[in-house]
């Protein structure tokens, strides 16, 4: 349904060209969930914003970048083409519901505005639809809530409202950019459940962005791990967790504190910091931080390939194989 081929998003800045997304390709089928995982600055947010044209004017796309949506090419350089899909066929949920909602408009007005604009519904119809939507995202007393303002709602309810707005026009693809990072753990689980339920009911495709492998573990069909503007490992979820090949994925995994571990277990961390995207290191971009790196890693960039049953990784000396002699 969605095909992204060789997406390059570069920002032209005073320091030089920031290669925020540098050659990313993936496909997403109807009804599937893709989890995109990476540290901040890995380009995961820029990646999905590129799809919706939500980037500043300094962003430039590479020449070979091709996006296909529902079998047709989608010109992400054209505002008109994007206006056809965004908010409608592709909707987005943001990290912080406090800033993504308009504080001076009632919840209902924010939902119906989208319904009127995209679907041409009128007052009463739109309101009924809005009530149904609010109800469907699990907000109790929908009829009362619809006339409230965002500041009268808790963080969890606000995020539910943001989801209701995103779902208003029956999108085919829902992009959730760290939808639970700003929320408590208990609320996080509820919101993730809600997203999964809505997705199943509506047969939507979903892209779930997070920095926490734990969040996508039970919820995504496929996982793509991003590092420094590239996808470094991609596999069906179960495969990935069973058999991590890219040392970076492994390192992300090791950084998560485990409930089953005894108290005060030191965590295995990745040294160093993500590279400067103006001047990324040659070869494999993870090499300077990688415990398994050899000279080949700094000389040649590993392609994203390999693995059986859809498991791909960009590494010369993957985990589980002996390193260089």
């Amino acid at each position: 349904m969605l095909t992204v081929s060789n997406l390059r998003t570069h920002f032209h800045t005073g320091r030089g060209i920031v290669r925020a997304v540098d050659g990313v390709s993936f496909n997403l089928a109807r009804g599937r969930t893709l989890g995109i995982v990476g540290e901040s600055g890995s380009g995961k947010t820029v990646l999905v914003r590129s799809l919706l044209g939500l980037l500043p004017s300094t962003a430039k796309f590479g020449g070979e970048t091709e996006i296909g949506f529902e079998g047709r090419p989608l010109d992400i350089r054209s505002e008109t083409a994007l206006n056809q899909v965004r908010g409608r066929a592709i909707a987005m949920v943001f990290q912080d519901p406090m800033t993504s909602l308009n504080p001076v408009m009632t919840v209902g007005a924010q939902i119906t505005e989208s319904l009127r604009y995209h679907l041409g519904l009128t007052g009463g119809e739109a309101r009924e639809r809005a009530v149904a939507l609010i109800d469907s995202v699990g907000i109790p007393m929908a009829r009362q809530r619809i006339d409230q303002h965002p500041h009268q709602l808790s963080g969890g309810l606000r995020q539910r409202v943001a989801i209701a707005i995103a779902l208003a026009c029956e999108p085919k693809l829902l992009i959730a950019d760290e939808p639970t990072t700003a929320l408590d753990v208990t609320i996080q689980a509820e919101i993730l459940d809600l997203l999964a339920r809505q997705q199943a009911e509506r047969d939507m495709a979903m892209i779930l962005i997070t920095h926490d492998l734990g969040v996508v573990a039970g919820r995504a069909d496929d996982i793509a791990v991003m590092y420094a503007g590239r996808i470094v490992e991609r596999a069906p979820t179960a495969r990935l967790f069973a058999n991590m090949r890219m040392p970076y994925t492994q390192a992300l995994m090791n950084a998560i504190p485990r409930l089953e571990a005894p108290p005060n277990t030191p965590l295995r961390t990745i040294g160093g910091r993500p590279p400067d995207l103006v001047n990324p290191p040659p070869g494999c971009r993870f090499a300077p931080r990688c415990p398994r790196a050899e000279s080949r890693c700094t000389d040649h960039e590993p392609p994203l390939e390999g693995g059986e049953s859809g498991h791909r990784f960009a590494c010369w000396y993957p985990v589980g194989e002996p390193g260089a002699a």
Binding site: G156, T186, L192, G214, V215, F241
Partner: peptide
Amino acid sequence: AALLSAIPQPSPERRPAKIALVPGEL
């Protein structure tokens, strides 16, 4: 117990157990 059940754990087999919490807000 509810808080414990809500923690996302990085293993796909252990699909998050139903949270032991009556749904509703604080």
